[in-house]
Amino acid sequence: MKKYCIAIIVMMLISMISEASNEAYEKAMHKELQQMKAAKSPEELQKVANGFARISEMMPEEWLPDYYAALALANAGFRIQEDKKEKDRYFHAAKQHAEKAAAISGNNSEIEALKGYIVMGELSVDPNSRGQSLSPLALQTFGKAIELNRQNPRAIILMAQMELGMAQFFGQGPEKACGLVGSSLELFKKEEAGQAENTLLPTWGKDIALKMKENCQL
């Protein structure tokens, strides 16, 4: 009886602790996600990225903290004006977090899409000289993301951005890219309907799709 009692207590304790740590994890994640939504400047995004990096230290088996740290750094990189070196520094740091996330969760469509997003960032720093080597890489990465999950609206809208850029460069029509925008919007709708409101999973990207849709309707 005594043994049985101890076993129950131990089990209760373990579940309490892990629940507590899970709760703390989720609480910390939600806090950072909130701040990420509000963050405007590269400095604020850097702080958010620091926050996610701290969570990743605590929960090394979760891919989401590194994923969001990478996303925040990539967004910071996109928001920096002019200073190419500084932009590159952010994309470089973003890449490191994305690689860490990918090492935790292999063949993850969301992480692949994010990697492609970072490549787009590096490409944007110096399109003239990096275009030749990086645009096929971005296309390939988004392609892989789509292959891993055809329902991933972020992979599709980012691919649509690349497609639109290429179509403009070669003077072709935007039809193909706009078709992708349409299907991504449908997937975003489906995602919203299918997910709990306080999900930790990635939900960003709809604003990109809506903006592109406006351009498509012009």
Partner: peptide, 19 residues
């Protein structure tokens, strides 16, 4: 130095340095 991540190891407690 702005943007430094400052935290207590083994906890979720931390912040970042301001501008």
């Amino acid at each position: 130095i702005p943007g430094v991540s400052i935290y207590l190891k083994g906890t979720y407690e931390g912040t970042s340095s301001e501008v």
